[in-house]
Design a protein around this nucleic acid. Structure first.
Length: 274
DNA sequence: TACATATGATCAT
DNA sequence: TGATCCTATGTAA
């Protein structure tokens, strides 16, 4: 159940493990048996992550496009290949490591043209160093939908999912139902910076947790769960007030009425971004 | 064993 | 808005 940080982390791992190598490709599940044979033994060029999309560039201009949807995942097994689960759709193997792909709603070979079209549809990715925050701000300015809806729109910003939308809005002190176009320039900038900081941490720590481990109590750290400020919580981590949850754009939204008032907070009263 | 639930997105209505 | 695709896990029965 990945957001953009996961895809960027996977791209890094795949580049490290597979780039420039001849890779065995198989489909234990059988569903991708034909394309797997076509790729088997080829040189793996590079992995590329954009928003929640992952591309594998193979020798000979073959490009694989993967989207993990809600349930898809890659599992990495160092060492000699283990017996695959029957649900493994695609297995990538070198002598050192195996990557198993489970349950992607999207797995397709695409042409360079199609690859370009997919990228064109995506808004700026906070994890892309070349991304332009101004593009994000302008997209918000022309959107009447609630800001919490806009954040899940991959044409406005790519890679943000249900966790980051809740947590970034919380840390920026922005009420989720405010019109996107009503955000000030400063708020738009703060929201971008906050989102980017959270997602960068997500890549670094290989987890979508938004609260840094060093900010947790001993008991919480021992439990080892991913920690959040409002997402799936009963009470706000900072003020202790009951967290409001309500459906928004088909997902559950979480917000604190105290820390995210309808009216903009004075900057000095905002929560400190991580 | 069954069911609810989940970090997503598309397509039909 | 609802149905649909995809899988694993935790809890209830």
């Amino acid at each position: 159940m990945p957001e953009g940080n996961t895809l960027h982390r996977l791209a890094r791992e795949h580049n490290r493990d597979l780039s420039g190598r001849s890779v065995r490709v198989s489909s234990p599940h059988g569903y991708f048996a034909v394309p797997a044979r076509r790729l088997d033994g080829r040189i793996f060029g590079r992995a590329e992550a954009r928003g929640k999309h992952l591309f594998h560039h193979w020798q000979g201009d073959l490009i694989v496009h993967v989207h993990l949807g809600m349930f898809g995942w890659f599992y990495r097994h160092p060492g000699p290949p283990t017996e695959p689960r029957p649900t493994v759709r695609m297995r990538l193997t070198t002598p050192e490591v195996t990557h198993d792909l489970i349950g992607p709603p999207t797995w397709e070979l695409v042409t360079p043209e199609k690859h370009g079209q997919i990228l064109e549809r995506l808004g700026p990715d906070p994890l892309d160093p070349r991304a332009d925050p101004e593009q994000f701000r302008q997209a918000l300015a022309s959107t009447d939908a609630p800001i919490a809806h806009a954040l899940l729109d991959q044409r406005i910003v790519s890679g943000v999912g249900n966790i980051y939308r809740a947590e970034a809005l919380y840390l920026a002190g922005i009420h989720p139902l405010r019109k996107a176009s009503s955000l000030t320039e400063t708020e738009g900038e703060l929201l971008w910076q906050t989102t980017r900081a959270l997602m960068r941490r997500g890549v670094r720590q290989s987890s979508t947790a938004t609260v840094a481990p060093e900010d947790l109590g001993q008991e919480e750290r021992r439990a080892g769960d991913e920690a959040f400020y409002v997402y799936r919580r009963e009470r706000c981590r900072r003020c202790g007030r009951k967290v409001r949850r309500f459906p928004l754009s088909g997902r559950t939204m979480y917000a604190c009425a105290g820390c995210q008032p309808r009216r903009a907070l004075r900057p000095s009263l905002r929560a400190t971004p991580p």
